[in-house]
Design a protein around this nucleic acid. Structure first.
Lengths: 214, 214, 214, 214
DNA sequence: TATGAATGAGGGTTCATTCAT
DNA sequence: GATGAATGAACCCTCATTCAT
């Protein structure tokens, strides 16, 4: 849905979607392959025509979601240097992605523990790469003076935690639209960074208006 | 440890402490009572002299940690009306508590899913009560004009997510001391709320200086 | 390979050869059809174009190997009456066959248990027929006085066990050649039977010199 | 029954005895723990109060039987140097042990493949130690001239194969008694080794008459 | 209080086999 | 003839929990 993948068998797609739902609802350990299979409408052993193992399925899901997220961020900020514009894009994409893929993100945050060591390293490597994108934005902004002098790592974590936290309560049919939330949290991020510019233009910045996701 | 409890058998205390460690390390479902018992130095069936069930043990832990946290917040802010002072106390206590009890908080955030429905409601009720304390502070501040006009619920979640996120990376032997983090995040919280006062005095507020936990 | 068979599809031949290897290496129960198919270079369900079932494949292999062995013995001793010459042929053929077809023999000795009752009876019937050939030689030799008076059944088992045991340690690239082993064990067999003649001529008997297998 | 072991729980003894029967009848792979448990009269998971794993159970059985056999051989030949007496003891003990423990020996010969590598090495090490006892006897006999000049390794395998083969057909209620078989096969072994002495006294040698097993 | 023994439920996974394509 | 997909049966094993001692 979000990126061009090696054409997948419909059953595989169904399994992956069901896995996200089932893992999100019960947790990876508590979710049984029998439950997953029933959700898909097949028998449990048939899952093995599409997955190598339960853990490998989790790994594939977590890796793919991070790869897709990184690809979006990098596509949006390719060629950009202005920290303000890049931060605006980051917040927009982070929230859009996280709110559209709330279950995937939830599973990704909860189930890292259940990966094997090598898979764990891959996923945390991607995750660190992602947070590194934000850290670079913050550092550039501090260096060029558009942000206050702050600890870039601490601010990275603070902004990321704030943004990701929205997943925990956002409901698509709720009081706030996604665009409301993007606006509010872009403001908050700039405030946290003591941005000396860009705040006034938050409501509708042309750079953030173009379609960022396919 | 944190509040006056019905005098507990030493083994029960050991079980609860070990449970936090084991649940935090492996997750509630993946942690077996055998592992817990071994951590305590007894056989698994002996646990049942102190706990009613695995799920009930989890509930007790989760409820008690929230009760303790609420008690601290309420004790600190009892009689106070100034939103600025109350927010300062809230940030201080939240961070102190969360960083001192990182494992408890981690388990509390991860394992809600594994509670039975009634227990789940109790714990989320306490949790909502806790976030309600912050919402009230924000609302009071907005009403009295010391904070910008913001959406109190959204800001509550944003501040809480930011503060709680510190647990995910703070290490006691790391670069930043707890007091550093309290100062930084108090600043951030005030900035997020557009506080018109209080920012200058963040470094050392008398009300927040007394020991908050036993 | 060893006898004229109903012209077999090359894939069927490959399956039978692979089955011997796989069954010998892992045992019949532990060897899966997937493994067998991979060894052949096809997918598991394709095996069923050539075999009726896994058990039936085992039966065919076990029966065919015994039929071939019996055919060789009977061809070599057809028309012969002298127990000494017949014993010499028996030892030569038994060892040649067993050492050339070590895997087949190994499987035949190990996997009888995994045959269905009817198939089991067929194979053990052939096996008993084979040992019966040796018993007849011993009995004839005792009757005609060229062998000591011995219990023919016990000696049959003793000689067969000794001969077959060579399979367990013989290696084609080892210290002893097949012909060395034939000579040594022919000697041993004659000694066990208290043969009053024939011992001196063991080294090269014309009757045993012709090629016994195709 | 055969040696002093660390006092075992009756259920453990029952499991080990049943395992020998079930493994002998169906083969290790084909024998399920459910079958074993039913044979013992408990539920399958209860087996794990006494065994660590199915493979470990097999290992324990195979190791213990070899350790017991080695202990008997060494006890009988302790202090003896005469190759003739030692061979007589060896044949006697080997046959007594193998015929009394036919199922254990059968499992031991069939299921080596199903051990893990480390366990496999332990058991084959013990087995090689056992065959080494016979090789030493043969070598000593050849050196002192009481046996013909033979290849000690080949003769070791030949004698062992012959002796062990008796397990395949001996029935306690059959035509031949164990003592008959010991006499016959002692004769055969001496003949195979071209023994220049000792043959006449086979029937009842004092050295072999004393009780060899507990 | 502590535990050895037991168990029903269920875990992930492999298997031989079938069948439509 | 070949195979992708599917499946019922069964595998070994772990689990939380009970209970007599």
């Amino acid at each position: 849905m979000r990126k061009e993948e090696p054409a997948r068998h419909p059953t595989e797609v169904a399994i992956r979607e069901a896995a996200i739902r089932v893992f999100a609802k019960h947790g990876f350990k508590a979710a049984s392959l029998r439950m997953l299979a029933k959700e898909v409408g097949i028998q449990a052993p048939s899952l093995y025509n599409y997955i190598k193992s339960k853990e490998r399925l989790l790994f594939d899901l977590l890796r793919d979601v991070l790869v897709a997220l990184l690809a979006e961020i990098d596509a949006a900020n390719r060629g950009l240097t202005d920290p303000v514009a890049r931060l605006r894009n980051f917040v927009q994409i982070h929230l859009d992605f996280h709110l559209d893929s709330r279950l995937e993100v939830f599973v990704g945050n909860m189930e890292l523990r259940n990966l094997t060591k090598p898979h764990y390293k891959v996923v945390t490597g991607l995750r660190d790469g992602y947070s590194g994108r934000l850290t670079a934005i913050v550092e550039d902004g501090v260096r060029t003076g558009v942000f206050e002098a702050v600890d870039a790592r601490v601010l990275t974590f603070a902004v990321l935690a704030m943004l990701t936290g929205v997943c925990n309560w956002y409901r698509p049919d709720g009081r706030m639209s996604k665009q409301d939330l993007v606006r509010i949290h872009t403001d908050l991020a700039f405030k946290m960074l003591g941005a000396r510019a860009g705040l006034e233009a938050t409501a509708e910045a042309p750079g953030a208006a173009r379609p960022l996701m396919v």
